[in-house]
Write a protein that binds this DNA or RNA. Structure first.
Lengths: 93, 93
DNA sequence: AATCTATTTAGAAAATTTTCTAAATAGGAT
DNA sequence: ATCCTATTTAGAAAATTTTCTAAATAGATT
């Protein structure tokens, strides 16, 4: 909660890549993991960070855990960024 | 350059506070430093990170160094964020 | 030129983050 | 019940980041 945690989560390249992957739909932890050259434990750690930042949420099916994008939090960052009012960038109401 | 470096720079609370301070106009390294309970060397480090990310630029006057906000880079992040198209947030053209 | 003020650089210490290995949990399949 | 498969948790190692102290630079003032 809060832009601080979100920006922290977004500062890691692995986590950003996970978010981009999830654009095309929900995936299991295993599927996500296969895209990286890292142990499942490490991916699990990153997923937990994304979850903590509310950038993803999970749903369980059988013994799989599906991860899904939660874009709503990103607006908060947009809003935070827009305080600097860079040229023409702002969040549409 | 690129959103990776920008997001990294934005992930630190001290650096974000510096950016907010600079909204009200340019300040010297010393003025900025006085707002924090940290050594000038540490502030100098954070300023260098912000500079590296192009979030601020400096101008020299006498033996002062003034730091100033550079909002143009923030658009790049807005753009990156908008790929996730959260509900109604997007960058106006 | 000597000194003072503002700031940075270098290098080390402290703190945090990322990654790994090994073990634990949980549910489905045999 | 036992065994797989999927994933997480715990704890340690590795890597990175933040912070500090001390010294260096640079320009202004005396």
């Amino acid at each position: 909660m809060g832009y601080a945690e979100t920006l922290k989560a977004l500062s890691d390249p692995v986590r950003r890549e996970i978010l981009v992957m999830l654009k095309s739909g929900k995936m299991t932890a295993g599927e996500i993991g296969r895209h990286f050259n890292m142990t499942g434990a490490t991916i699990s750690y990153h997923l937990s960070q994304l979850k903590k930042a509310d950038l993803v949420f999970e749903t369980k099916f059988k013994n799989f855990i599906f991860y899904e994008l939660n874009t709503s939090v990103l607006e908060e960052i947009m809003l935070w960024l827009s305080q600097f009012g860079g040229s023409n960038a702002e969040v549409k109401k």
